[in-house]
Design a protein around this nucleic acid. Structure first.
Length: 415
DNA sequence: AAGCTCGGCAACCGCAATATG
DNA sequence: TCATATTGCGGTTGCCGAGCT
C-alpha cells in the first residue's frame, strides 16, 4: 500500500515535547476534539506530524492516564494476560485501566521480563526454563526452544480461543434447542418456536430469551446447562492455556525456596487459587456478534441469558472471552467446575475492576476505557481490540457446530 | 569532580489493518 | 474493485538521569 510517511516533511519538529506544545495540543483537543490527526497539527499551530500528536495524546496527555508505579496487582494482571496474549500490548492495556500499551510494554521489557528471567522463567512461554529444556531434550517435535515458544503461544491462544468460542456457541444452542422443546411441550406457538429456532447471534432477530432466572425450570433442568459438570469434564481436550496457571502454581511452591526476590509470584498464585475456591459469582459475558450470551450470576444456578441486540458489543465480547479463558484455565486441573468460579485476577484486581476496588474513575477515551459494572465481580467493558472481527464469524462457528453431532455431553469434535 | 555505564521511558519508525472516495 | 488516506500497533531507538568508579 503506497503510503507516504507522515513525518518526512521538512520543518516538522521531532523529539521530546515541550510544555508549550503539550498545552497547545491539549487546548486544541479539549476544544475541538482531535478529529483528523493529519489535519490537527496545522489547526493547532503545532510543528509536528499528526502521528506524533496522536502518540503524545494517547501516551501522555490523555486525562485518563494513570502514571507512576505499577501495583502488584497490575503486575499480576500483565503477567497473566501476557501469558494469554503474548506481546499484544494494546489488548493487555484494555484490561489495565488508565495504562497505555506503551507504558505496559515498557514496563514489561524493563521490569517484568527481567524478573521472570531472573527467576528462571521463560518470559515468552511463561514456563520454567527447565521445562522447555526438558521438552526439547525429550525429543519434542519442536526443533528449538524458540520455535517451541512461539508455537506454544500461538497454539495455546488459538486452541483456547476456539474451544471457548465453540463452547459458548454450543451451550447457547443447547439452550435454545432446549427452550424450543420446552416451549413446544408447553404449547407455545409455532411462530415463537420458529423465531427462536432461527436465532443466531448475528441474525438480528428481535427475540429476547431470558433464561437468567436461577429458579426457572429452563435454567435448572436443562441437560444442556452451559456450565454443567459434564460439559466441563473435558480435560482430555483442555487447551494448553492452563499451563500458565500450572506454572504459577509451581512458582508458588518454588517461591518458598527462593526468597531472594521481594516480588512474589506466589502471591499471585495464592490469590488465584483462593479465588477459584471462593468465587461463585463470577460472570461470564460473551457476545456473539449481535447477541449477548451471558453466564449469569451464579455458576451453580446456571444462569444464562441470551440477549439479542441490534448492535454488537464487541468490547464486551473480548472481556467476556478473556474472562472465559481465565475461567477455563482455572478449571483445567479437574474437579467440579461448578464449584469453580473464574479466578480472573484481572477482574478481581481492585486496580482494574470495580469489584470493591478503588474508584477507577471512568473516563472517556479512545482507548482503555474499560467500564466497571458496579456490583459485578467481573464485567468491564472494553472499547477496542476485538477478536471477533468478522460479522459472519459466529455464524461460521454455529455452522461448524451444526454439522457436528450435537452431543449433550459437549464432546463435539470441533477441532 | 569528572567520566562512564546502565536502566527507564518517551518518542519514533514502519508495517498492517481499516476506512474512504 | 481499487487506490489512497488514516489509524492502530509492536518493535526499536535514543535521550536523560541515577549510580558507580
Amino acid at each position: 500500500m503506497g503510503r507516504s510517511p507522515c513525518c518526512d516533511k521538512v520543518g516538522l519538529k521531532k523529539g521530546p515535547w515541550t510544555p508549550e506544545e503539550d498545552q497547545m495540543l491539549l487546548a486544541y483537543i479539549e476544544e475541538h476534539g482531535h478529529g483528523s490527526w493529519r489535519a490537527l497539527p496545522s489547526k493547532a499551530g503545532l510543528q509536528r506530524c499528526g502521528k506524533s500528536c496522536r502518540l503524545r495524546w494517547t501516551n501522555y496527555l490523555r486525562p485518563d492516564i494513570k502514571r507512576g508505579k505499577f501495583s502488584l496487582q497490575e503486575e499480576q494482571t500483565i503477567i497473566q494476560l501476557h501469558a494469554l496474549l503474548g506481546n499484544r500490548w494494546s489488548a493487555i492495556a484494555t484490561h489495565l485501566q488508565k495504562r497505555t500499551d506503551n507504558e505496559i510494554k515498557n514496563y514489561w521489557n524493563t521490569h517484568l521480563k527481567k524478573r521472570l528471567t531472573k527467576m528462571g522463567i521463560d518470559p515468552v512461554t511463561h514456563k520454567p526454563k527447565n521445562d522447555a529444556l526438558l521438552t526439547t531434550q525429550a525429543g519434542s517435535n519442536y526443533s528449538s526452544s524458540k520455535s517451541a515458544a512461539n508455537l506454544s503461544h500461538m497454539a495455546q491462544w488459538e486452541s483456547a480461543r476456539l474451544e471457548a468460542e465453540a463452547r459458548l456457541v454450543r451451550q447457547s444452542k443447547l439452550r435454545s434447542h432446549s427452550l424450543l422443546a420446552t416451549l413446544a411441550a408447553a404449547g407455545s406457538s409455532s411462530a415463537t418456536a420458529t423465531s427462536l429456532k432461527s436465532w443466531s447471534p448475528s441474525s438480528g432477530i428481535n427475540v429476547h430469551v431470558d433464561l437468567e432466572s436461577p429458579t426457572s425450570t429452563l435454567s435448572t433442568a436443562l441437560p444442556g446447562n452451559p456450565i454443567s459438570s459434564s460439559d466441563h469434564h473435558e480435560d482430555d481436550r483442555s487447551p494448553s492455556i492452563p499451563h500458565m496457571f500450572e506454572f504459577i502454581k509451581d512458582v508458588s511452591h518454588r517461591q518458598h525456596d527462593d526468597e531472594s526476590d521481594d516480588w512474589t509470584v506466589c502471591q499471585l498464585a495464592a490469590d488465584h487459587h483462593s479465588s477459584i475456591n471462593d468465587h461463585h459469582n463470577h460472570h461470564i459475558n460473551a457476545v456473539a456478534s449481535g447477541g449477548t450470551i451471558s453466564c449469569g450470576s451464579s455458576m451453580e444456578a446456571g444462569g444464562w441469558t441470551l440477549n439479542n441486540k441490534e448492535s454488537s458489543n464487541d468490547d464486551v465480547a473480548e472481556e467476556g472471552f478473556i474472562s472465559l479463558l481465565l475461567c477455563d484455565s482455572s478449571t483445567a486441573g479437574g474437579g467440579d467446575h461448578q464449584e469453580h468460579g473464574c479466578s480472573s485476577e484481572v477482574n478481581n484486581n481492585s486496580e482494574v475492576s470495580g469489584g470493591g476496588g478503588s474508584g477507577n474513575g471512568k473516563n472517556s477515551s479512545n482507548k482503555d476505557s474499560s467500564e466497571n459494572n458496579s456490583g459485578s465481580t467481573t464485567t468491564t467493558t472494553t472499547n477496542e481490540h476485538e477478536y471477533y472481527e468478522d460479522k459472519n464469524y459466529w455464524n461460521s462457528i454455529l455452522n461448524l457446530v451444526d454439522t457436528s453431532s450435537p452431543s449433550p455431553d459437549g464432546d463435539t469434535p470441533i477441532f
